Computed example of a mutant assay.
Amino acid sequence: MKVYVQFKSYLESKGYWEVFIYLFFGGLATVVNFVSYAIVQQLFHLSMPVSNTISWICSVLFAFVTNKIWVFQSKSPSYTHFFIEFAKFVFYRIVSYGLDMGAMILMIKGLDMNDYVAKIITQVLVVLANYIFSKLFIFNKTEIIEEPIETNKKLED
């Protein structure tokens, strides 16, 4: 645990902790994406677009939770804020899904590349795009203002 604290402190002092933790969870989201793609395609023999879509849904749900809680430590002051944040997250993930699907089709159909090699390459592009989207447009720091509780004057009299 001491090594972890020292490592985290060092990265925080250099301003790299957020990037490191994003890449860590981005890597795990990539594993979720890749494994769910392989399972859906090999066990259920579904097409590449369907398998890719299912794997995308799995990784987006995983990524939202990890990004919100551990990477950007975003606090939602209300349910409305939470749902807006989730909607923005899904919107930008749809954008990166288009990048993912377009690159997959280009590499598999256009360049005759193995679909698993193409999947690995596209995931690097997607993780980079998603970090930029999350940092700039989704998990903005929300200042939560707590108003002081006023005491009832009648009770004090």
Score class of each variant (00 low, 15 high):
Val3His: 13
Tyr4His: 10
Val5Phe: 09
Gln6Tyr: 12
Phe7Ala: 14
Phe7Gly: 08
Lys8Ile: 12
Ser9Thr: 10
Ser9Trp: 06
Leu11Glu: 01
Glu12Leu: 15
Glu12Cys: 13
Ser13Cys: 09
Ser13Trp: 04
Lys14Phe: 15
Gly15Asp: 02
Trp17Thr: 06
Val19Pro: 04
Ile21Glu: 01
Tyr22His: 00
Tyr22Asn: 00
Phe24Arg: 05
Phe25Asp: 07
Gly26Thr: 08
Thr30Trp: 00
Val31Tyr: 02
Val31Phe: 03
Val31Ser: 01
Val32Asp: 11
Asn33Thr: 07
Phe34Trp: 14
Ser36Gln: 02
Ser36Phe: 06
Tyr37Met: 08
Tyr37Leu: 13
Ala38Pro: 00
Gln41Thr: 00
Gln41Ser: 04
Gln42Pro: 00
Phe44His: 01
Phe44Ile: 03
Phe44Trp: 04
Phe44Arg: 03
His45Ile: 05
His45Asn: 11
His45Lys: 10
Pro49Cys: 07
Val50Ile: 14
Val50Phe: 07
Ser51Gln: 01
Thr53Asp: 00
Ile54Val: 12
Trp56Ser: 04
Ile57Arg: 01
Cys58Gly: 05
Val60Tyr: 00
Phe62Val: 11
Phe64Lys: 04
Val65Lys: 11
Thr66Pro: 07
Asn67Tyr: 10
Asn67Gly: 05
Ile69Glu: 09
Trp70Ser: 07
Trp70Thr: 04
Trp70Phe: 14
Phe72Glu: 01
Ser74Ile: 03
Ser74Lys: 13
Lys75Asn: 14
Ser76Met: 08
Ser76Leu: 05
Ser76Tyr: 09
Thr80Met: 13
Thr80Asn: 12
Thr80Ser: 14
His81Trp: 12
Phe82Met: 12
Phe83Ala: 15
Phe83Arg: 14
Phe83His: 15
Ile84Cys: 04
Ile84Tyr: 08
Phe86Cys: 07
Phe86Tyr: 09
Phe86Ile: 06
Phe86Lys: 02
Ala87Met: 15
Phe89Gly: 07
Val90Gly: 03
Val90Ala: 08
Phe91Ile: 11
Tyr92Thr: 04
Tyr92Phe: 14
Tyr92Arg: 02
Arg93Glu: 14
Gly98Ala: 10
Leu99Ser: 15
Gly102Lys: 03
Ala103Asp: 10
Met104Pro: 00
Ile105Gly: 00
Ile105Arg: 01
Leu106Asp: 11
Met107Asp: 05
Ile108Arg: 09
Lys109Met: 06
Lys109Gly: 03
Gly110Arg: 02
Leu111Thr: 10
Leu111Glu: 08
Leu111Phe: 15
Asp112Gln: 08
Met113Pro: 01
Asp115Asn: 11
Asp115Pro: 08
Asp115Val: 02
Asp115Gln: 11
Lys119Glu: 11
Gln123Met: 07
Gln123Arg: 07
Gln123Thr: 05
Val124Glu: 09
Val124Tyr: 15
Val124Gln: 12
Val126Leu: 06
Val127Asn: 03
Ala129Gln: 14
Asn130Ile: 03
Ile132Tyr: 08
Phe133His: 13
Leu136Met: 06
Ile138Thr: 10
Phe139Trp: 13
Phe139Arg: 05
Asn140Thr: 08
Glu143Ile: 09
Glu143Tyr: 12
Glu143Met: 08
Glu143Pro: 00
Ile144Thr: 13
Glu146Asp: 13
Glu147Ala: 12
Glu147Leu: 14
Pro148Met: 07
Ile149Ser: 10
Ile149Trp: 05
Thr151Glu: 09
Asn152Leu: 03
Asn152Gln: 03
Lys153Thr: 05
Lys153Ser: 09
Lys153Asn: 06
Glu156Gly: 00
Asp157Asn: 10
